[in-house]
Amino acid sequence: MWKWLHPYAKPETQYYLCERLIPFAAALSLILLAVATVWGLAFAPADYQQGNSFRIMYVHVPSAIWSMGIYASMAVAAAVGLIWQIKQAHLAVIAMAPVGTVLTFLSLVTGAVWGKPMWGTWWVWDARLTASLILFFLYLGVLALYSAFQQRSTGMKAAAVLCVVGVINLPIIHFSVEWWNTLHQGASITKFEKPSIATPMLIPLILSIFGFMALSLWLSLVRYRNALLREDMKRPWVNALVK
Rank of each mutant, 00 (worst) to 15 (best):
residue 4 W to T: 14
residue 9 A to Q: 15
residue 15 Y to G: 14
residue 21 L to F: 12
residue 23 P to L: 05
residue 31 I to Y: 00
residue 32 L to W: 00
residue 33 L to A: 01
residue 50 Q to H: 13
residue 54 F to L: 11
residue 70 I to D: 02
residue 73 S to I: 10
residue 78 A to Q: 06
residue 79 A to F: 13
residue 79 A to Q: 08
residue 86 I to K: 13
residue 87 K to A: 05
residue 89 A to S: 07
residue 93 V to C: 10
residue 94 I to W: 07
residue 97 A to H: 05
residue 99 V to D: 08
residue 105 F to A: 15
residue 106 L to M: 15
residue 107 S to M: 10
residue 112 A to T: 11
residue 113 V to I: 15
residue 114 W to I: 08
residue 115 G to L: 01
residue 116 K to V: 14
residue 116 K to I: 12
residue 118 M to N: 12
residue 121 T to W: 02
residue 121 T to C: 04
residue 123 W to S: 13
residue 129 L to I: 12
residue 133 L to G: 14
residue 134 I to T: 12
residue 137 F to D: 06
residue 138 L to Q: 00
residue 140 L to D: 02
residue 141 G to V: 07
residue 143 L to S: 10
residue 143 L to R: 07
residue 144 A to R: 05
residue 149 F to Y: 15
residue 158 A to N: 06
residue 161 V to F: 10
residue 170 L to V: 15
residue 174 H to N: 00
residue 174 H to Q: 06
residue 174 H to T: 00
residue 183 L to P: 04
residue 185 Q to F: 03
residue 187 A to L: 13
residue 191 K to N: 11
residue 199 T to Q: 09
residue 207 L to Q: 04
residue 209 I to A: 08
residue 211 G to I: 02
residue 211 G to M: 03
residue 216 S to P: 01
residue 221 L to S: 02
residue 225 R to N: 03
residue 227 A to D: 03
residue 229 L to R: 13
residue 232 D to E: 09
residue 234 K to W: 00
residue 236 P to Y: 12
residue 237 W to Y: 09
residue 237 W to F: 13
